[in-house]
């Protein structure tokens, strides 16, 4: 497959997304605020022994919170308004008259739109919580680095898999939005489900008993939870290969499912109007 059309589309959308720098900055400030509030809450919970035999220590919990905030933009919580709009206006016909694969085109678009903001927010959070807070003597409130360089590397691999799976899920949602001709239902359902299952509401390692272990098996854990478990050493070194295998599995499943849904939707799509 010649990838030039897709990389060109990726560059164009990436460039467009980067025009909304103020929105990204605002989003960063919101993440910062929520991060500080969560860190405060966890300090209160831990120092008053309100969590029974916590499976992760306070510094792990605080680091996990910051990673949550840094990666939160990855979550597909709503259909791309551009897709919804192209369904409403019929502009989607232009996606279908290009001699390229529509799934890959949508994937490139989704990745391009989210990658820039995610990387910017991630870097700023790490800068703030990983460097500025400890340097200011507020280490208890800041992120702790991974225990080894190899863990750092594995975190990066895991985060990339997370980004790729998040994109596949986003395209799947866009496709379902297109199939239903309106994203409203999908958006309403996705929001609660995704926020909870990706571990951005309660850190999944803190779920009680067996649920903590089972929670890594569902696809949304791949986005924030698994990379964060690897980063914070909440996952043992011997568990990492299994966690990454789970991520690869879900990436494969979400892409196959997304392609199938796309084919079905596009053959059935009845584009109305002039």
């Amino acid at each position: 497959m010649n990838i030039l059309p897709y990389t060109a589309a990726f560059r164009a959308w990436f460039h467009t997304a980067m025009q909304y720098r103020v929105a990204t900055l605002t989003s960063f400030i919101a993440r910062l605020w929520f991060g500080l509030v969560y860190v405060e809450i966890f300090h209160a919970l831990y120092s008053n022994n309100l969590i029974h035999q916590p499976p992760i220590g306070i510094s792990q919990a605080v680091t996990y919170v910051w990673l949550q905030q840094a990666l939160i933009r990855l979550q597909p919580v709503s259909c791309d308004p551009e897709v919804a709009n192209s369904i409403r206006t019929g502009t989607i016909v232009y996606d279908r008259v290009r001699p390229i694969d529509t799934y890959t085109l949508w994937y490139a678009r989704s990745l391009a739109k989210n990658l820039g903001p995610v990387l910017i927010i991630f870097s700023l959070i790490v800068l703030f919580a990983g460097l500025i807070l400890p340097a200011a003597g507020l280490g208890l409130w800041g992120m702790s680095p991974p225990e080894s360089l190899s863990r750092y590397m594995l975190f990066i691999i895991s985060a990339i898999l997370g980004i790729l799976t998040a994109t596949a899920l986003a395209v799947l949602m866009d496709t379902l939005g297109a199939a239903l001709l309106s994203p409203a239902g999908i958006n309403a359902m996705a929001f609660t489900l995704v926020i909870f299952l990706s571990g951005s509401y309660i850190p999944l390692p803190l779920l009680p008993g067996i649920w903590s272990t089972l929670s890594v098996l569902q696809p949304l854990a791949s986005l924030i939870d698994i990379p964060s478990r690897i980063f914070t050493s909440s996952a043992t070194t011997s568990a990492i290969p299994y966690l990454i295998a789970v991520q690869v599995f879900w990436l494969f499943v979400t892409v196959v499912l997304g392609r199938w849904a796309m084919d079905r939707t596009m053959t059935r799509l009845q584009i109305q109007g002039g």
């Binding site: 059309p5 060109a8 460039h15 019929g90 016909v93 232009y94 001699p99 002039g274």
Partner: peptide
């Protein structure tokens, strides 16, 4: 299609043309 646009809304026309060159 007279009522729809195939050009990228936020991009200069010349960039849209370059993109179409790569797509085709």
């Amino acid at each position: 299609f007279g009522q729809k646009t195939q050009l990228w809304w936020d991009l200069p026309i010349s960039r849209s043309f370059d993109l179409l060159r790569d797509i085709y």
